[in-house]
């Protein structure tokens, strides 16, 4: 009986670990695949920062001339080339999401650099927004996604530091959204616009809806820290993460557009994948832990029942 239970526990633990790991792998894959699409097919959302004179002055220190920086028209300049290279780095990171293993240190290092890249993107967007703090915070999920995967692979998906990092990622994403949605910082017009287009409500109703959604975002932030609320908070976060990511294509795509506008909007959903895969990871982790706890207590009971009989 004991051997069977241990084996079942080990098997369950094994596939659960796989599931948890794949949550992070898939989330990270879509995140970088989306950004790769944004870089290689379109222009990334932070590009206007690169075109600034401050950037040129900085590169000038390394000997780049105006023509080398801007391109001549006949060829690309440093900025266009950098964007292309960054796009390919995103492709590599997307691939690494599935190929990285515990002992492949080079791959893990490259994945870690993905977090640095995402941090740079977040800072660029933070500057572009006029230094709005929520813009920086809400990228927490995407910034931490690669490092979370590295942690899961190197120190384990069930390690306390891994889960704590996942909790921080969720709190940052939803905290940032919440700050915008309740209007502590000016609510981005696209939030209201998407709500109006998708649900069809007027401006006032949409603002109220966003206010409620923002309050729920804050509840999620606290909820993931409270044991009896954390599973439901993570579940809600996952669903709301899917909804907000899907809102982009739902609001923007149309049968009348080339490719239905999919090329414009789908990648915006894709790179938001950590917004729902990390909450899913936490939800499953806490579900499995709960099951294991009850499974563990059942095992103990069995042991208690078994031991005497064997003694006999």
């Amino acid at each position: 009986m004991t051997i069977q239970s241990d084996q079942a526990k080990a098997e369950a633990s094994n596939w659960q670990t796989q599931v948890l790991e794949y949550c992070l792998r898939i989330g990270n894959f879509f995140c970088f695949a989306g950004w790769a699409w944004g870089h290689l097919y379109w222009e990334p959302s932070y590009a206007s920062i690169l075109w600034s004179e401050a950037s040129f002055e900085w590169f000038q220190q390394f000997g780049y001339s105006w023509e080398e920086f801007t391109g001549t028209g006949a060829n690309d300049g440093l900025i266009q080339e950098c964007i292309q290279w960054i796009g390919w780095i995103c492709v590599a990171n997307a691939v690494l999401s599935f190929t990285a293993r515990r002992n492949s240190w080079i791959q893990l290092c490259l994945l870690t650099s993905g977090s640095l890249f995402m941090l740079a993107v977040a800072v660029a967007k933070y500057i572009r927004s006029g230094f709005e703090l929520p813009m920086l915070i809400e990228h927490g999920g995407q910034i931490l996604s690669p490092i979370l995967l590295v942690m899961a692979l190197s120190i384990g998906v069930r390690n306390r530091i891994t889960t704590l990092t996942a909790i921080i990622a969720v709190m940052m994403t939803f905290g940032g959204h919440g700050l915008y949605a309740v209007g502590l910082w000016p609510t981005p017009a696209t939030f209201v616009g998407m709500t109006r287009v998708v649900i069809g409500w007027d401006y006032d109703a949409s603002k109220l809806f966003l206010l409620v959604a923002g309050v729920l975002d804050f509840i999620v932030c606290f909820g993931v820290l409270i044991p009896f609320l954390r599973r439901s908070s993570a579940l809600y976060a996952m669903i709301w993460g899917i909804v907000t990511a899907a809102a982009r294509p739902v609001a923007g795509m149309s049968w009348e557009l080339n490719y239905w506008g999919a090329d414009q909007f789908l990648h915006e959903s894709a790179y938001r994948a950590p917004h729902f895969f990390i909450p899913l990871f936490l939800y499953l982790y806490w579900t499995y832990t709960k099951v294991q706890h009850s499974f563990g207590s059942l095992t103990l009971e069995t042991k208690d029942m078994t031991l005497p009989s064997t003694t006999k």
């Binding site: 401050a54 900085w58 290092c109 650099s113 640095l116 740079a120 800072v123 500057i127």
Partner: peptide, 25 residues
């Protein structure tokens, strides 16, 4: 190399933040 790359990125970010902050209205 990674350290140099990371330092460069941090320097660029810091330079841009400081530069943009200086230019705020």
């Amino acid at each position: 190399r990674n350290r140099i790359f990371a330092s460069l990125i941090i320097l660029l970010i810091a330079n841009t933040v400081v530069g943009q902050n200086r230019r705020r209205v």
